[in-house]
Design a binder for these strands. Structure first.
Length: 870
RNA sequence: GGAAGCAUAGCUCAGCCGGGAGAGCGUCUGCCUUACAAGCAGAGGGUCGGCGGUUCGAUCCCGUCUGCUUCCACCA
């Protein structure tokens, strides 16, 4: 073995072997219900970022754990191809080569896009492999592949036939940069400083009279077709039905009454622009108002804007405000903060526009989706995310699914050019089925999340019947970050319920976000992103994975820091070296089939085995709760503090003893193997590397080995282990004593002990350990009558007979401190016991523990007092 | 405007069923003790955000206040 941990020496080699032997697809027990994890589609347009690294590491850990527990564990990978961002990227890439999207035509563009995607999709797969991810790559599927296309089309047709998909003119969110419609979920609201302008509209036939309206978007006034007031508003009741001259245009608009208007807000009069505002759109429908669109799809004022034609919407705003002021029609301007909608991909301010789009009726789909979570069939971990989901589902509005792009699943709707018949079909149509006229397919494609929503079954081959689908659906757990609950999780749930008649997964595990060291969200624009591959290159994959998972709380955000990663790398080194020590000392080991039943276990052996059993059950519990963070932390503590710091050191003494050597070797190997197995889901490479060199290896690969079973420590062994804790405390006390006196480890001294009765047996058996770990040349046992103890522990009173170690001021101070502590503890316990409420209501075990404390500390206090006198 | 989360050691964060609080890093002291200086042994450091309440007992449960973060939201 190398002198120290060197991941580059083995990581790639190991992964290649896993692939070669197809361990990822290995099925330990096909009769068990399978365990399936859905993998969110990474966005292939960017590099793998820390969020992916975290998310994929958690999924991989769960998959590996379940596989080791004998489940047929499958991790379905996927890649999201059909997004707006992808198309934008492809367009950019083509532009860099001097190629215009439109000049290629749809076919040419798609071909270029597929080429580009193959390249990047492949790159993502390679990156995930570097993370050690144990996907079954043979099942890889992309939202744009044939299988998924078939499923998408089938779902579209089914929903259409049920009347749950419809086409209509609605107010939608329009991105003037991407030039496509957006769903509500794709709009981000950002607070920005803006103005509230009060505009005066002259009343027709009443010279000098005005109605003042307030608006945050003056440029839309050119499209106003009415001014609305509340019907009960006394200020305006006489104006209802009158006409206003719309300034800057030659149009006359009516004053209408609508209860939507809040008389208490602003001036109580609202300008109505049905073509450019969702509320106005509805009012317009109620009052049959014209819709006058004053901008084109790029946010530039059109011919309806008269003199403002050709200006972009923001320049038009400035000019209109200026012109209104010139005309004396600007009553006042207030500065004001308000929320503007922005495109979540490109951050452009979203423009509400009326257009003909496809929608999914959400009400009928949402009801069962709400029920599935309410009834507990689907659980969110942590539970608080259920509220977010519920709130969204209960307030859901119809989903705009058409996008004005080329890169995506084309909407399977055909329109007859002769009779106007609209037809949705599973197969491409060449002629109208009603009149035989020629047909044209809808130009739009579907929202990328429409196909992603089908992931749990489309990747398994739906709509075709097949064994995989029967076996794996519904899947078990979906792991994802909370920022994607609406986009993806919610839609998978209602799609699964609608198409499959069953939930897509029973658990939604939500992980948090990875932020930078200052707590900011990592993003390209802030340029604070850290590439996981760089970290892997510098430290190794296992340290990266461990640092992302160790100690994280489910759903909580975390900060990424270089210090943390270094600490994790150091832990790998620790583990590596501990293994090296075991191997060096176990070359001649004779493996015993079941070490736990061995009759010659020492007190130290019993102790580590008991601690090990405790660790196994804690770790198992954590993994079963999908809490890899807790599992990793528990393992870190056990490995470092109990195995390395204590047992390995204790073993040194026993390995030198020919009587004990064989047993010790077996315990070392047994515990080490268990540690490796339990750590394997979190840090797959180093554990495999070490495992393959173990003499007591029990499988071809740790990946497919059996996870340690939880065993209850036998009572006798537990007792022995508990006694041994006292020995450890004694060693600690002697070490602390020596350290305070600045005795270098090289200076070894004799140690006199007066054993406490109940631990005298283990104490006499532990002389070897004490000599080694407490730097004692010799350990002498004294009768209780011998005074001058310097140290008092539960195991023994101790005395170190070196002239320069005794009776100085520092020692007296230390003893006083000990005394103060003991007295405080004693008082605390006594106070509790004197409290009638406590003795009556507290559990018996606690009361007993307090009584024991009183006894123990009374003794300690008297001994310390005695020592101080001497 | 609505909702959620977070406030614990100098920093970053754990803390499962309420029984007097932990880790990593940093700091200080002493050590190359034959697996590991990417290390070892020790030490110091916290009115668990403020105030009330429930309880024999509260970091934990309830209320409230303060500060930060995030999500949702068509009020011009």
């Amino acid at each position: 073995m190398d002198k120290s941990y060197n991941p580059k020496a083995f990581e790639q080699k190991i992964y290649a072997r896993w692939l070669e032997n197809n361990y990822f697809a290995a099925a330990p027990d096909k009769n068990k219900k399978p365990f399936t994890i859905m993998m969110p589609p990474p966005n292939i347009t960017g590099q793998l970022h820390m969020g992916h690294a975290l998310n994929n590491s958690i999924q991989d850990a769960l998959t590996r754990y379940k596989r080791m527990r004998g489940f047929m564990a499958l991790w379905l990978p996927g890649t999201d191809h059909a997004s707006i961002a992808t198309e934008v990227k492809i367009v950019e890439k083509l532009a860099a080569q001097g190629i215009d999207k439109k000049s290629l035509g749809r076919e040419g563009f798609l071909k270029a896009a597929f080429d580009w995607n193959d390249q990047y999709g492949g790159r993502i797969v390679e990156q995930l492999k570097q993370l050690g991810c144990s996907c079954d790559w043979n099942r890889k599927a992309f939202t744009m592949d044939e299988r998924c296309s078939k499923a998408v089309r089938e779902v579209f047709v089914r929903l259409y036939e049920k009347g749950l998909i419809y086409r209509g003119e609605r107010m939608i969110n329009w991105c003037t940069e991407c030039k496509t419609a957006l769903s509500d979920a794709e709009v981000e609201h950002k607070e920005s400083a803006s103005g509230l302008w009060y505009l005066k509209y002259p009343v027709q036939g009443a010279d000098g009279e005005f109605i003042t309206v307030a608006t945050t978007r003056p440029e839309t006034m050119l499209g106003d077709t009415a001014v609305a007031v509340n019907p009960g508003d006394k200020r305006y009741v006489n104006f209802i039905g009158k006409s206003l001259a719309l300034p800057l245009t030659d149009r006359i608009i009516p004053v209408i009454a609508d209860s939507y208007v809040d008389a208490a807000f602003g001036t109580g009069a609202v300008k109505i622009t049905p073509a450019h505002d969702p509320n106005d759109f509805e009012i317009g429908q109620r009052h049959k108002l014209n819709r006058i669109a004053v901008m084109d799809d790029g946010g530039v004022m059109n011919e309806n804007a008269g003199a403002y034609k050709g200006l972009n919407r923001f320049d038009a705003r400035k000019k209109i405000v200026h012109d209104m002021q010139q005309k004396g029609l600007l009553h006042k301007t207030e500065s004001r903060k308000n929320n503007v909608g922005c495109c979540y991909r490109c951050d452009t301010v979203v423009e509400p526009m009326v257009s003909l789009q496809w929608f999914v009726s959400m009400q009928p789909l949402a009801t069962p989706a709400i029920q599935a979570v309410e009834s507990g069939k689907i659980k969110f971990v942590p539970k608080r995310f259920e509220k977010i989901y519920m709130h969204w589902m209960r307030n859901i509005r119809d989903w705009c699914i058409s996008r004005q792009l080329w890169w995506g699943h084309r909407i399977p709707a055909f329109y007859c050019t002769a009779c106007g018949n609209e037809e949705v079909s599973r197969h491409d149509l060449t002629a109208c089925t009603a009149c035989g006229g020629s047909v044209k397919q809808d130009e739009d494609v579907l929202d990328t999340w429409f196909s992603s929503a089908l992931w749990p079954f489309s990747t398994l081959g739906w709509p075709d019947k097949n064994a995989d689908l029967d076996y794996f659906y519904p899947t078990d757990v979906l792991v994802t970050a909370y920022d994607i609950i609406f986009f993806w999780v919610a839609r998978m749930i209602f799609s699964g319920l609608e198409q499959m008649g069953d939930i897509p997964f029973s658990t939604v595990y939500i992980n948090g976000l990875v932020r930078d060291a200052k707590g900011r969200k990592m993003s390209k624009s802030a340029n604070n992103g850290i590439d996981p591959l760089d970290i892997i290159d510098q430290f190794g994959t296992d340290p990266l994975r461990f640092s992302l998972m160790n100690g994280i709380a489910p759903g909580g955000d975390q900060r990424f820091s270089a210090d943390k990663i270094e600490g994790c790398r150091n832990f790998m080194n620790k583990l590596y070296n501990a293994a090296k020590f075991v191997m060096l000392n176990c070359a001649d080991a004779v493996i015993v089939p079941d070490i736990t039943a061995h009759k010659k276990l020492s007190a130290a052996d019993n102790w580590i085995l008991a601690r090990y059993n405790t660790a196994v059950s804690a770790v198992t519990r954590a993994y079963d709760k999908f809490d890899a963070g807790q599992a990793a932390q528990r393992l870190y503590d056990f490995t470092r503090n109990e195995f390395c710091d204590w047992y390995v050191e204790l073993a040194k003494a026993d390995l030198a003893d020919p009587e004990r050597r064989k047993v010790t070797q077996n315990v070392l190997l047994y515990v080490l193997r268990g540690i490796l197995k339990m750590l394997h889901p979190v840090i797959p490479f180093i554990t495999e590397e070490i495992y393959m060199q173990l003499p007591n290896r029990d499988a071809q690969s740790i990946m497919i080995s059996e996870f340690p079973k939880s065993v209850k420590t036998p009572a006798k062994q537990a007792r022995s282990a508990a006694e041994f804790e006292h020995i450890i405390q004694l060693i600690r006390a002697v070490r602390a004593f020596r350290a305070e006196k600045n005795v270098p480890p090289s200076k070894r001294t004799a140690l006199y002990l007066v054993p406490t009765a109940d631990v005298s047996a283990p104490l006499t058996q532990s002389v070897g350990y004490i000599k080694r770990l407490a730097a004692a040349t010799e350990v002498f046992f004294l009768t209780p009558s011998v005074p001058s103890a310097q140290l008092l522990t539960a195991a023994a009173a101790a005395y170190i007979p070196s002239a320069d170690l005794t009776d100085n001021a520092a020692e007296k101070a230390r003893l006083l401190k000990e005394l103060a502590f003991a007295e405080a503890e004693l008082k605390l316990a006594q106070t509790k016991l004197n409290n009638a409420g406590f003795t009556q209501k507290a559990p018996q075990a606690l009361i007993d523990a307090e009584r024991e404390k009183v006894q123990r500390f009374t003794q300690t206090v008297s001994k310390l007092t005695q020592s101080l006198k001497n």
